[in-house]
Write a protein that binds this DNA or RNA. Structure first.
Length: 326
DNA sequence: AATGGCGGCAACCGCCTAAAC
DNA sequence: CGTTTAGGCGGTTGCCGCCAT
């Protein structure tokens, strides 16, 4: 049987969304909450198919989305998670709660792939490793990306400045308009990469605040706990900043492993020997006992877990190396 | 100033999955 | 238990703006 289209093709508008359409969509979701996308076009009069509405909301209009300016830290997360999970953009996005899978996918395809290729090209001419390069630390040893062996020999390249269009800015404004509603509305986003309902950028959240504002929606990682000073000053990052960046990455990565191990295996060994970055399991226990979990990330497969633990120990090795350097 | 090339990104397409019936 | 279908996901396309010539 031929699969029917998700919507009638006739009379369906395609192409970029207009601010008017966005406002209609946002107003409707504000009233009814996200979901039941099938009914959105008919109830709003939008000449868009349900999928288009859903995509527009999840990738663009949803409050709390951070756009542009991927930090080196985020780059590292993406690179490592891509190596770990493959092109599972939705899964990767679940660990970067303020980024959409589409955004991450685009960034990977347009920026990171090229950068990694550059690194590979560079490594062909320079066998000696520069041990302070971030990329090196984020990558599992001998890891291949799209059949290209990746190594390192250069420093972090700052991401492009915010290249959002004029209209993108207006969409952000729409998101801001929703901020108040999201705090009080009984409706919550119900997709897998659910986000904190506040549009507060995590740069604004202090480490202390983090303990009390930890999202239940992204429980496996408390990504938003990154300390603000670590991800500021993307350009011209000095070595100690870079170290801090990597440290926080490692900390959160270990957090992943830690929580996984707490939930399914009490014999976590990931960081016990590090001496530099010990997982504060008491803290984790406190953070999660304090409030019941509403949703959890899907359990890692055996292979993923194994890879994760391995990568953790690799990063820890680098941390020890770096601690002797700095 | 005109134009052709290129890169970035929003949006579409088609397949897959799981829930509903 | 089989069928239907909404929603989710990853790959791809095409538009638009920037830059070099």
């Amino acid at each position: 049987m031929v699969r029917p289209p998700c919507c009638e093709k006739a009379g369906i508008k395609k192409g970029p969304w207009t601010p008017e359409e966005d406002i209609i969509l946002v107003s409707y979701i504000q009233e009814h909450g996200p979901g039941n996308w099938r009914s959105v076009p008919t109830n709003t009069g939008l000449l868009r198919c349900s999928k288009s509405c859903r995509l527009r909301w999840t990738n663009y209009l949803r409050p709390g989305i951070k756009r542009g300016n991927f930090t080196p830290h985020e780059e590292g997360m993406i690179i490592h998670l891509q190596a770990l999970l493959g092109n599972k953009w939705a899964a990767i996005a679940s660990y970067l709660p303020q980024r959409t899978d589409n955004d991450i996918k685009n960034y990977w395809n347009t920026h990171l792939k090229k950068k990694l290729k550059k690194f590979q090209m560079g490594s062909d001419h320079n066998i000696h490793h520069n041990s302070t390069s971030s990329y090196h630390h984020f990558m599992p040893k001998n890891q291949e990306y799209n059949n290209e062996r990746v190594s390192d020999n250069s420093s972090v390249v700052a991401t492009d400045p915010n290249s959002a269009s004029v209209y993108a800015s207006s969409a952000e404004n729409i998101s801001r308009l929703l901020e108040g509603w999201m705090r009080t509305s009984p409706f919550q986003p119900n997709n897998n990469h659910e986000i904190k309902t506040s549009t507060t950028n995590y740069r604004d959240i202090s480490a202390e605040e983090c303990d009390t504002t930890t999202s239940t929606a992204v429980p496996a990682l408390n990504i938003q706990c990154y300390k603000p000073e670590i991800i500021e000053n993307v350009e011209g990052m000095n070595p100690s900043d870079e170290l801090q960046c990597i440290l926080s990455y490692n900390h959160n990565l270990n957090g992943m492993a830690c929580e996984k191990s707490v939930s399914c295996d009490s014999s976590h060994k990931g960081s016990e020997n590090s001496g530099l970055i010990m997982i504060d399991q008491e803290k984790f226990r406190f953070m999660h006992e304090d409030k019941p979990k509403i949703e959890t990330n899907p359990p890692l497969s055996f292979l993923e877990k194994w890879l994760l633990e391995e990568s953790c120990s690799q990063v820890e090795g680098v941390m020890q190396e770096l601690s002797s350097i700095f």
